[in-house]
Nucleic acid binder design. Structure first.
Length: 588
RNA sequence: GGGGUCGUAGCUCAAUUGGUUAGAGUCCUGGACUGUCGAUCCAGUGGUUGCGGGUUCGAGUCCCGUCGGCCUCGCCA
């Protein structure tokens, strides 16, 4: 090794020793007769003292190897903020191993406020910042804790293919053209789903992996085109068995990372219960403001918007914003505009004033209705009631987002709480308006709840699956299901979503075949690792926990991909590039 | 694909109603200074105002287009 110690480990015990340290010169403080340099590596930093003659020619971020003697600091110069703060090292001799010859695009500081694309382009400098290194380390420890918990439970780590058959269902595939077979393509896996199922058929019994998953969809704050999962699958299990294992994983992670012992088991709620009470399948239970169903107040209310909603079997529901009756017209307009981004057509507000309701819609409904709304909502003096009328999905989404927004703005969230929960019994299908057919909510290999087995086809919308999500503080960490292992049942499901047997075999023949060779019943779960790391750190940008993330347009700024390639390479792949037509020149 | 917002020195920002030579902090360079620790003090370098058009006597500022960042809706079994 070119060093005897790291820059973070020297302390009083080393005083008098001669050591060799390597690191970057992060801060150079010249006091004429003595020069201080913070020699830094990812483990910390050590103050190096140099004479003016020695320090000549050293620039910030030069990479140095320093032979030095460990000496105590003068009592008035102790630095209690860092572990090495009781000592410093007196430079004996040094080598500049590598010069920093360019001006830094930004300073290597933890509290940095610059455009993110610059950080992404110079990611190697960004990661030199201690806060970024600590996030990578956090993630590494998280993976280690999860792995330990899984190994403890006799899971076997198995890698699944990175080149797979394209499955046009679900999200868009990334495709890789075949050189050897013109016109044929590999796909990068959206998830290892089918391959882990086949591992169960293979008798692996308990599988896990931290696979990369590729989805060619527009990225988001909490989403990447390439993300990492904690993926697992188990044979011979009930839903509860999987919950147990995942709870152990989360327990292990919390213990390792925060020294906190989570309370197990996590509570369970059904999908329809969380939708009814919080309007969303991943509710944040750290604060109240549950949705209130106002349907009972509507008959005879005199307001056509409400009455028509009920007549159409839509909903009229609301939430109570505590102490918000003072909101200005402008603020209420903002809330309405916010709600409308979620495709509801209206938002009505009622202020509780002198134990009566006032507000934009209060004159449109009968007085007895107002009284009923007040009772149903249990709103108190000074509260604001926000009411929406509309179809199930849009209405619940809008109210849930309003609840989330107000919970944040009104500071209602108790940040000391760790609200894990399981959401179970999701519907198996959802109606695809565009395609005019039923589509699987999760994926088509999900086991329906047994009680619907005889009547699947009669009312697909009511069928629930053995299908569950793990939710934490309003964030969906992962989802999973028990799988269909019967080829007959699988065929029925495929037929229900409008897939002919021919199509099914063309796409999934390998899996359907496999299930004809006898399979143990099995199920599993996938948890988004990036998302989990971000959430546990309380961050809101997934790129902060990924070494080389993509920017929000899906490009990678650290190496400039995607990029053009040589025509030869394209020719070898037997493909032609169809350039978008250039815009016609505008007349002057 | 839609909407919002931003783009001025390496970085973070300012620049009055469209009006003189586009400023400040920081970084960098040089100098001063026995103890700093994101040192301090002094001086200096540093600009195609993202790019292309247009309006105007005059554009960082107004208009059109375009490119890029971030957020968001759609999308994401």
């Amino acid at each position: 090794m070119l060093r005897t110690h790291t820059c973070g480990e020297l302390n009083k015990a080393h005083i008098g020793q001669e050591v060799v340290l390597c690191g970057w010169a992060r801060s150079i403080r010249d006091h004429k007769d003595i020069i201080f340099i913070n020699l830094t590596d990812c483990y910390g930093w050590t103050q190096v003292c140099m004479t003016p003659a020695q320090a000549a020619g050293i620039n910030k971020e030069d990479y140095l190897q320093i032979k030095a003697k460990v000496i105590p600091r003068p009592p008035e110069s102790l630095n209690t903020k860092i572990p090495t703060g009781e000592i410093e090292v007196q430079c004996i001799e040094y080598t500049i191993i590598s010069k920093c010859t360019k001006e830094l695009p930004f300073e290597i500081l933890d509290n940095l406020d610059i455009r993110e694309d610059i950080r992404l382009k110079y990611r190697f400098l960004d990661i030199r910042r201690p806060i970024m290194y600590s996030r990578l380390r956090f993630r590494s420890r998280l993976v280690k804790a999860v792995r330990q918990a899984l190994e403890q439970e006799r899971f076997l780590e198995v890698e699944t293919p990175m080149f797979v058959r394209s499955t046009p269902e679900g999200s868009r595939d990334f495709l890789v053209p075949s050189r050897i077979f013109p016109g044929q393509f590999y796909a990068l896996p959206q998830s290892p789903q089918l391959y882990k199922q086949m591992l169960m058929i293979a008798g692996v019994d308990r599988y896990y992996q931290f696979p990369h998953c590729f989805r060619d969809e527009d990225p988001r704050r909490e989403r990447q085109v390439v993300h990492t999962q904690i993926d697992l699958e188990m044979s011979l299990v009930s839903q509860e068995d999987i919950f147990n294992v995942v709870e152990k994983i989360m327990y292990s992670a919390y213990k390792e990372l925060f020294g906190v012992e989570l309370k197990l088991p996590f509570p369970h709620y059904t999908y329809y219960e969380v939708m009814r009470r919080w309007g969303i399948d991943k509710p944040d239970l750290r604060f109240g403001m549950e949705l209130v169903d106002l349907a009972d107040a509507i008959p005879g209310c005199g307001f056509s918007v409400f009455e028509e909603a009920i007549a159409k079997k839509h909903y009229v529901k609301g939430i109570v914003a505590p102490g918000c009756a003072h909101f200005t017209r402008k603020k209420l307009d903002e809330l309405e505009a916010f709600a409308k981004t979620f495709q509801v057509k209206n938002l009505f507000t009622f202020k509780v004033h002198n134990h009566a309701l006032e507000g934009n819609a209060s004159k449109k409904v009968q007085p007895q209705t107002l009284q009923k709304i007040l009772e149903l909502s249990q709103a108190k003096e000074g509260d604001l009631i926000l009411v929406c009328a509309g179809p199930y999905n849009f209405l619940h989404r809008a109210l849930a987002e309003l609840r989330k927004l107000l919970g944040k703005e009104l500071n209602l969230i108790d940040r000391s709480q760790l609200q894990f929960l399981w959401v179970t019994d999701f519907p198996l299908f959802e109606w695809d308006e565009e395609a005019q057919r039923w589509a699987p909510m999760h994926h088509m290999f999900t086991m329906p709840n047994p009680k619907y087995l005889d009547t699947l086809e009669q009312n697909p919308g009511e069928v629930t699956g053995i299908l569950y999500d793990l939710v934490f503080n309003g964030v969906e960490l992962g989802s999973g299901s028990l799988r269909i292992t019967s080829p007959e049942l699988q065929k029925r499901i495929m037929k229900m979503i409008g897939m002919s047997e021919e199509q099914a075999y063309a796409r999934f023949g390998f899996l359907l075949d496999a299930y004809q060779f006898a399979s143990p019943p099995h199920g599993g779960m996938g948890i988004g690792l990036d998302n989990l790391a971000m959430t546990l750190l309380g961050l809101e940008n997934i790129r902060e926990v990924i070494a080389y993330p993509n920017a929000s347009n899906g490009t990678f700024l650290h190496d400039g991909s995607p990029a053009l390639v040589e025509q030869d390479q394209i020719d070898e792949l037997h493909i032609a590039i169809k350039q978008p037509k250039p815009e016609p020149e505008k007349k002057a």
